[in-house]
Design a binder for these strands. Structure first.
Length: 187
DNA sequence: GAGCTGATTGTCT
DNA sequence: GACAATCAGCTCT
């Protein structure tokens, strides 16, 4: 019952399904990473999605093949990592439970507490050293490593999305129930 | 613990 | 020129 590589077909589905199924998977970047505990889905006909107004230079990666990384800068200073699903849709990786390379992540983040290393999309990217260089690159190839553990029971909760001003009512945020590594608790 | 605010820059209107 | 899928540090309770 070990970890298995995630196939590209995993991402060729509706982003809500992918967001839910990504909870509990393991994401590593160059040997540093952990368990995904929080995600958000963004669909194509979704006013909150960067793809809503069509393809532009910034969101071009979002229209790439399933399992492509879409990385963008948020609020001028943070990076956010998304996994592209069907073209024009994506899942935002919001938080992780660090399991490998804790020391490296702590050094990059400038903090020691494990729960502060990757509990938030900007923090997660800083801990994994993900930035514009990764935009448009495949998540299923090095330096990325994405694994799932089929058959492992996982308790998943959902709620409304965070940090956006449009279509906030959609319950498209998913998290690992009771995890202390969430960016915020689910209400 | 909750709530406010400044930081900082690429992108679109 | 406004705004943004955020964070950290502050105040007040």
């Amino acid at each position: 019952m070990g970890w298995q590589a995630i196939p590209q077909d995993f991402f060729n589905r509706h982003p809500v399904e992918v967001a839910r199924d990504l909870i509990g998977t393991e994401l590593m970047v160059a040997g540093v990473g952990g368990i995904v505990v929080e995600t958000e889905a963004y669909a194509e006909d979704d006013p909150a999605s960067h793809s809503f107004r069509g393809k532009t230079a910034r969101n071009a990666a979002m229209f790439g093949a399933p399992a492509t990384a879409y990385v963008y800068r948020s609020y001028g200073l943070h990076w956010c990592l998304n996994a592209v699903c069907r073209p024009g849709t994506a899942v935002l990786l919001r938080a992780m439970e660090p399991t490998a390379g804790l020391g490296v992540m702590a050094a990059r983040r400038g903090v020691n507490a494990p729960r502060l290393l990757a509990s938030g999309p900007g923090r997660l990217c800083q801990a994994l050293a993900v930035d514009a260089r990764h935009d448009g690159t495949p998540l299923l190839h090095p330096p990325f490593r994405l694994l799932s553990r089929p058959g492992t029971p996982i308790d998943i909760v959902s709620g409304h999305r965070i940090g956006i001003s449009r279509a906030t009512e959609k319950p498209w945020r998913f998290g690992l129930a009771g995890s202390p590594f969430l960016s915020r608790r689910f209400g």
